[in-house]
Structure formats: structure tokens, C-alpha cells
């Protein structure tokens, strides 16, 4: 008999025992190890995905920051350029204004110097003219300058035309105040008497004459009453002389003005 039933039963039991043994020592541990490894790999992959996602987010964030930074930098640069241009224009304007101010000051100083020089020349000329005239008159005929001035004044008074004489007379008569005779120099009593007599004789009035010394009169004699005035002085002569000197001085500032214009142009070129 090929089949031994005891052996069959024993082999069935042996096989079932082997199934239990292999389940316990082989399949379960191996399957657990595989599952654990798969879970670990899955977790690591999930971590890697999460890290990749984080890295991508950080990369996007950094990229965004870089773009914002670039935009801000460009904006700041543009603003700085605009401010620099505005500052340059402001500085150029300030330099130009300062230059204009300096030029104006210089012109003012020049004008002031010109005026003071003119005044000094006038004073000096007047003094010199007086001195020369006085000396010449004294040397030639023994007459003082004051006498000659009084004579000239009285002669001019007498030589007035009819209209002027009439106006003067009517003003003299209607004036409630005294007739005022102003001179640059102090008149001697003799000269005062002469003038007073001549006035009364010419104007035909009996009013008193009041004498006054005025240095501003620029060397001369002047009578005035009720708005009417007649005078003689060397101011006219001096005025013509002053005009000639002015013309002479005006030629000098022209050269200086050209030089200043050239200096201003060079400043503008440097600023541009």
C-alpha cells in the first residue's frame, strides 16, 4: 500500500505546524518590516515633498522680495536722480542769484563810488574855481570874488526881461513876508547895503530884505519871494563840467560791465 494513513495524518499535523511556524517566524516579521520600510519611505517622500514645497514657497517669496527690492531700488534711484537734478538746478539758480547779487552790489558800489567821486570833483572844482577866480580877480583888479558875484547878480537882476520883472515885482509886492536873499558865503555889511539898495531901487519896494547863508547853494546869490526866485551861481558851470566828467566815467563802467558779463557766462558753462 502506497498510502500510510498514520503518515498522512502525521504529515497533515506537521504541515499545519509548519504553517503556524512560518507565519510566526517568516511572513509576519517580513511583512511588518516591508510595511515599516514602505511607511518610512512614504514619510520621507512626504517630508521631501513638504520640504520641496517649502523650498518652492521660499524661492517664490525670495523672488518676489527681489523683484520688490529691484523696483524699490529703481524708484529710489530715479528719485535720487530727480532730486540731484533739482538740487543742481537749485544750486545753479543760487549761484546765478549770488552772481547777480554780487554784480548788483558791484554796480551799486561803482555807482556810489562814481557819485562820491563826482561830488568830490564838484566840491574840489568849486573850491578851485573860487580860489582861482578869487586870486585872479584880486591880482588883476583888486576886486574880491564876492564883490564880483554881487555885481553880476545885480546886473542880471537889472537885465531881466519885462515879463520876469513884472512877475517878480508883483510877487514882491503881494508877499506878506520879507524878501529872502540867500548866499553861499557871508555877505559883508557893505555888500548887504548894496544889495538892499539895488533891490529896493529895481523893484521899487520898501520892504526889508533878510539875508541868509546857505552852503548848499553852490556858490551864488539867490533872492526869492512868494514863489518867485532869481539867482546866479556857478552851479550851471559846474553842471556842464559834471556832465563832461560823467561821460568820461561812463566809458569806464562799459569795459567793466563787459568783463563781468564774460565772468557770468563762464560760471553758467561750468554749472551745465
Amino acid at each position: 500500500m502506497l498510502i500510510d494513513w498514520f503518515t498522512v495524518g502525521a504529515q497533515v499535523i506537521n504541515f499545519l505546524i509548519l504553517v503556524w511556524l512560518l507565519k510566526r517566524f517568516l511572513y509576519k516579521p517580513i511583512l511588518h518590516a516591508i510595511d515599516a520600510r514602505e511607511q518610512r519611505i512614504t514619510a520621507e517622500l512626504a517630508d521631501a515633498d513638504a520640504e520641496k514645497t517649502n523650498a518652492e514657497q521660499e524661492r517664490n517669496m525670495l523672488q518676489h522680495k527681489n523683484e520688490v527690492f529691484e523696483q524699490q531700488r529703481a524708484a529710489f534711484l530715479s528719485q535720487a536722480i530727480d532730486e540731484a537734478k533739482a538740487e543742481r538746478l537749485r544750486l545753479l539758480d543760487a549761484a546765478r542769484q549770488e552772481s547777480d547779487g554780487l554784480r548788483a552790489k558791484r554796480q551799486e558800489a561803482l555807482r556810489s563810488e562814481q557819485q562820491s567821486l563826482s561830488k568830490a570833483l564838484t566840491d574840489r572844482t568849486r573850491e578851485e574855481v573860487f580860489a582861482i577866480a578869487r586870486k585872479a580877480l584880486a591880482d588883476l583888479a583888486g576886486i574880491t570874488l564876492e564883490e564880483r558875484m554881487v555885481d553880476v547878480f545885480l546886473r542880471r537882476l537889472r537885465e531881466l526881461d519885462d515879463t520876469g520883472m513884472a512877475g517878480l515885482k508883483s510877487a514882491f509886492k503881494t508877499s506878506p513876508s520879507l524878501m529872502l536873499v540867500r548866499t553861499t558865503f557871508v555877505l559883508s555889511p557893505t555888500h548887504r547895503t548894496i544889495i538892499e539898495t539895488a533891490v529896493k531901487e529895481i523893484l521899487g519896494a520898501e520892504k526889508c530884505v533878510q539875508f541868509e547863508t546857505t552852503p548848499d547853494l553852490v556858490s551864488g546869490i539867490e533872492i526869492s519871494t512868494n514863489g518867485q526866485k532869481i539867482a546866479w551861481s556857478i552851479a550851471d558851470y559846474l553842471a556842464s563840467m559834471e556832465k563832461g566828467i560823467d561821460e568820461m566815467l561812463k566809458t569806464k563802467p562799459k569795459f567793466e560791465t563787459r568783463a563781468e558779463l564774460k565772468a557770468g557766462q563762464s560760471i553758467n558753462e561750468h554749472g551745465a
Binding site: T7, Q11, I17, L18, L21, L22, F25, P29
Partner: peptide
């Protein structure tokens, strides 16, 4: 039966030896 026991011993002990320290 004897050879079957031998095979069972080899399979069980071999599996036990290998799966005693499994690496995950």
C-alpha cells in the same frame, strides 16, 4: 516524518535566525 521534521526545523530556525534582527 523524520525528513519532514528536518525540513520544518530548517525552515523555522532559518526564518527565526534571519527575522530575529530585521532592518526597517
Amino acid at each position: 516524518i523524520i525528513f519532514t521534521w528536518g525540513l520544518m526545523f530548517v525552515l523555522a530556525v532559518g526564518s527565526r535566525l534571519v527575522t530575529r534582527r530585521l532592518s526597517t
